[in-house]
């Protein structure tokens, strides 16, 4: 087995994930690109488990399992944030989100209430 093949696959997938995170506007697509990056890391870990003989056997695969669990937690919280963003702003475009909020945080939901009522 030539380890360079899965290593190169993982490197290309990681590059694609970085490209997707920077390029996409839709928050759900950004999360998909993050999944691509996490999977590239998983592939690196599993391949490293076959090439490096560690003291503890199968450490790389155990780490890959841990990363999968982390990705599941990340996607749960991430989608909760995205759905909350959609409820507040009626959009999931990440560059429509103002990073500096001028109004004081009165509860976080007040500006959207005003916006939606002004639109009616």
């Amino acid at each position: 087995m030539r380890p360079v093949i899965p290593y190169v696959t993982a490197a290309l997938l990681f590059g694609l994930g970085v490209y997707g995170v920077l390029r996409r506007r839709n928050a759900v697509l950004v999360l998909m690109s993050v999944e691509l990056m996490l999977n590239a890391v998983n592939l690196i870990l599993v391949t490293a488990d076959t090439t490096a003989r560690a003291v503890l056997p199968h450490s790389g695969q155990v780490f890959a399992l841990f990363v999968i669990v982390l990705a599941a937690a990340e996607i749960g919280v991430g989608l909760a944030i995205v759905l909350q963003l959609y409820r507040l702003r009626a959009t999931v475009a990440v560059d429509d989100v103002p990073l500096t909020e001028p109004s004081p945080p009165v509860g976080g939901r007040e500006p959207a209430v005003l916006d939606s009522e002004a639109g009616r």
Partner: peptide, 10 residues
């Protein structure tokens, strides 16, 4: 950046 990261790692 994406291409740089991917090709650099490759």
């Amino acid at each position: 950046i994406g291409g740089g990261a991917g090709l650099g790692l490759t």
